[in-house]
């Protein structure tokens, strides 16, 4: 059996990749994908810990996270389409009319 710590290290690496993606990439769709990566890294950690503990709390939370992520993406993509119709771009740097 693969030790639990391997799963945790993999999930930490995925989470870091997701955070870097959100901070570095400028295309809104790629930013969304990075957020999904963060959420799925958390899911992997939850499932691994649930396996270690033998409980079901972690696995239950994974279902909630998947559902919530789907709802979030539905709203996000709708917004992205609306912005694309206006500006013909998905670059988050060009969506910048509001500033102080």
């Amino acid at each position: 059996m693969v030790p639990i710590s391997y799963y945790i290290m993999l999930s930490a690496a995925l989470f870091t990749l997701g955070v870097l993606g959100v901070l570095i990439r400028r295309n809104a769709i790629v930013v969304f994908m990075s957020v999904e990566l963060m959420l799925n890294a958390a899911n992997l950690a939850l499932v691994a810990f649930a396996l270690q503990r033998g409980g079901i709390d972690g696995q239950v939370l994974v279902f909630f996270v998947i559902t919530v992520a789907a709802a979030e993406v539905a709203v996000g993509l709708a917004l992205l389409v609306a912005i694309f119709r206006n500006k013909r771009t998905a670059d988050v740097d060009e969506v910048n009319q509001l500033h102080g």
């Binding site: 945790i8 999930s11 989470f15 997701g18 955070v19 959100v22 957020v35 963060m38 959420l39 890294a41 958390a42 899911n43 950690a45 939850l46 691994a48 810990f49 649930a50 270690q52 503990r53 709390d57 972690g58 939370l61 996270v65 919530v68 979030e72």
Partner: peptide, 13 residues
């Protein structure tokens, strides 16, 4: 939300 879920995962762990 990503930070929140990962935080919960670590607390659960």
């Amino acid at each position: 939300a990503g930070f929140f879920v990962y935080g919960i995962a670590l607390i659960y762990g």
